[in-house]
Amino acid sequence: MNTMILGVFLLGLSLVKNLINISFNELLSLLSRVFEALYGHEHDYQEMAQTIFWLECHGHSGINKLIEKLPELEAVKNIYLPSPNITKEVITVDCCGGSLFTNAHLICDLAFSEAENYGTSKVFIINAKDPYAIIGYLGSACNNSLSSYLVTDKISAFISPRSQYPTIYSNTSCKKIQLTCAKNHNLIDMSHIANLEPKLDVIKQKSFYEIALKNGLSISTLNFKKLNLIADRILVPSTDASRLGAGE
């Protein structure tokens, strides 16, 4: 029943004049072009796009989060991270005030790799913005063998092996962003969420995804235009000569 109500709601939303209905394929392609326009081939722009895409099509408002962040992303061109500090117990990554939208995947790679090799890993992420991006990557990465647990100042998230759907909790009190991965989830300290009800559970995210896949995603026309404006920077102006480049 809830699914049906949500479906009707989404369809209704798309009828509102300032919304546009787009497919998953269109959104992923658009985001990919946006990040390619922002960072060229110096970074894994497709993975950045995939992270936002995952958030959007699982009900986490990925597009709105990205749009809010765009001025900052456009201003900061150097998004390279300094080498992580690695000790036996913990890896510390300093994001130097940058957004995790651009490098959540790199940090998760480290966490996954250490946990695969040593059974468990803990990563402290400091001076970072947009920790929600980690959730986007954990969902889209769908790691086969690891449980992952993310704690930030506002939310916590736990995801099981092979799952695309983290369970999200709110109201944590952690000062820093902390990602723990383990082959055995019993090795992860999840005391922060021991007695909490999920803010967003697997069923809601799955349901959002399925309805959006069926009906398309409704996003603001203004946001769609903003993204396209950036995406179009990868296009080369057309000339009579360039038209020959596709074969007169």
Partner: peptide, 9 residues
């Protein structure tokens, strides 16, 4: 790849 993100793809 952490220090060479251009190669990750």
């Amino acid at each position: 790849a952490f220090s060479r993100p251009h190669l990750r793809y």
